[in-house]
């Protein structure tokens, strides 16, 4: 009962987040107010009624698919709590009598001289550092594209927009060719530099700046003799919701990336956790046991899923801004 209650309050908190971000959005936007979904709206008119039978039927289907989507994650959680050798015996979807999660985590962080914590730190460094720099660069560029007219502006925007269509994996081999020619491969920078360029971020901050930073603010700043950078420092506060979205997208993009770092980094001390775990999986259980691999996968997923759930409203908002326009 208590766990149910807690679950409920967590969902309420999520909802409160919904409302808070709705309030945080700038008010003086006329261009795309229709694009912002108002949260907590009952869709259909009260004139329509839903028969209990069809409601039960729909909920049954939805629940069935919820099981499908949750089962593998549940298996990962359960498997991470099982002792060595128990992972493939008994019911895979239920805990064994022996709860070994703490022991497994200990083994995980001691394996191969503690390389796992190194991988986690690398992932964090690439994803947080890359996310922050990418957000800053993209919002500066997007702000200028929206608010500072200059010759060639549309050409720049068009080129950046075309790049959104070019998928990162296809770019990985060309990047590798250039970076190996310039001897950048197998360094921190070979993964970090591609991580700080976000064409999607430029796109998003341009449309957001266009509607949320008033021209009067920029003109008033100029009349007061403030520098352009100083004016941007004020305007950027109005772009905060878009910047959070850009950061989140970029963080997840970098954290989940596998191909680029696996191509660039032969040195396992520089690798992120995705590359490390796949190399462990390829050992087929020895000397790194399957239990350790599964525990490693579980531990690596926890921070992202936690961040995901706590910031879910931002995700829907960011996606909405993109999908409606």
């Amino acid at each position: 009962m208590t766990s149910l209650d807690r679950g409920h309050s967590a969902l309420d908190a999520l909802d409160a987040g919904d409302r808070a971000t709705a309030v945080a959005r700038p008010a003086g936007r006329s261009e795309n107010t229709a694009a912002v979904p108002r949260p907590r709206r009952s869709r259909d008119s009260p004139l329509t009624t839903v028969s209990p039978a069809s409601r039960v039927f729909v909920l049954a289907i939805m629940s069935l698919f919820a099981v499908y989507f949750l089962a593998p994650v549940w298996w990962l959680l359960v498997a991470a709590t099982k002792g060595q050798g128990e992972i493939f015996s008994g019911n895979g979807f239920w805990f064994s009598r022996h709860f070994a999660l703490v022991h497994n985590v200990q083994t995980l962080f001691e394996a191969q001289g503690g390389i796992y914590s190194r991988w986690l730190l690398n992932s964090l460094l690439y994803a947080v550092g890359g996310g922050i720099v990418a957000t800053l660069l993209a919002s500066m560029c997007g702000y200028a594209l929206a608010k500072l007219p200059f010759p060639g502006r549309e050409a720049v925007f068009g080129t950046v927009l075309a790049a959104v269509l070019l998928p990162a994996p296809v770019l990985a081999i060309p990047l590798y060719l250039v970076f190996s020619y310039t001897h950048v491969v197998n360094t921190f920078w070979s993964v970090f530099i591609p991580s700080i360029v976000s064409p999607f971020g430029v796109y998003l901050s341009r449309i957001y700046a266009a509607s949320s930073v008033p021209d009067q603010l920029i003109e008033a700043g100029r009349l007061d003799g403030a520098s352009e950078l100083r004016i941007f420092g004020i305007g950027v506060r109005l772009m905060a919701p878009a910047m959070v979205t850009i950061f989140l997208f970029q963080f997840v993009a970098i954290w989940t990336n596998y191909l680029l770092p696996s191509l660039m980094l032969a040195n396992d001390k520089l690798q992120p956790v995705t590359v490390g775990l796949v190399s462990w999986r390829e050992l087929q259980g020895y000397p790194i046991s399957y239990t350790t691999v599964v525990t490693g996968a579980f531990v690596s997923v926890v921070p992202v899923v936690a961040m995901f759930l706590s910031l879910q409203s931002f995700w829907s908002k960011g996606l909405a801004t993109g999908s409606v326009k």
């Binding site: 259909d44 839903v50 989507f69 994650v73 997923v301 992202v304 995901f308 879910q312 995700w315």
Partner: peptide
């Protein structure tokens, strides 16, 4: 989006979205 799933709408949204939080290789 319809009224049919008013109970548990947020639960379904989160449950369906959760796999996206796992890196592709994981």
């Amino acid at each position: 989006d319809s009224r049919v799933t008013t109970p548990g709408r947020r639960f379904f949204r989160i449950a369906y979205f959760l796999p996206y939080g796992l890196p592709g290789v994981i």
